[in-house]
Amino acid sequence: MKSKKLSFLGLFLTAALILSYIETLIPFFYGIPGLKLGLANAMVMLLLYIYGVKDCILVNIIRILIVGFFFGNAFSIIYSLVGALFSVIIMVILKKTDKFDLAVVSICGGMAHNTGQILIASVFFGTPYLLYYLPVLLLSGFICGGVIGIISKGLVTRLKVLLTNG
């Protein structure tokens, strides 16, 4: 049982890494710093809803470190970690209440992620001027979080039976 779970976690980590890589290939930018799709968040949602908080955070941290060393730099690792911290905290709290749909949890997570990133960037630069982009990033977090949330809801309902029973 334990080794099975371990191998599935490894599989999810690989999938998340590939999704992160695909995301670097998509020029989803349009002149706004920090705008992105958040494909890897689908894997995070999957882990959160199938295996629970601890495994989700563990896999996510490993993913961020690997992606950071492969495609980014020290700054991008810090930004990703802060964004992930914000979004995971919000999503875990919302999931614990058990009142909200997975897609709604994902939307809140996406918005929290973008807020966290813009806050850490503002602290890093020591200027509030980056907050100009906060509304746009909140909107993009809403839309992208919604799309990813709908995708991961489909994945969770289909994979949960497979992974917990088989």
């Binding site: 930018f29 002149g31 706004i32 710093p33 991008s76 630069f125 001027y129 100009y132």
Partner: peptide, 24 residues
């Protein structure tokens, strides 16, 4: 890639070199 800016409050950000160009 952040393009041209012309409105108040807009910025161009370069994380690796810690540069921020903003219009005020």
């Amino acid at each position: 890639k952040q393009g041209k800016i012309s409105k108040e409050g807009q910025s161009i950000v370069c994380l690796p070199h810690k540069i921020i160009v903003s219009l005020r």
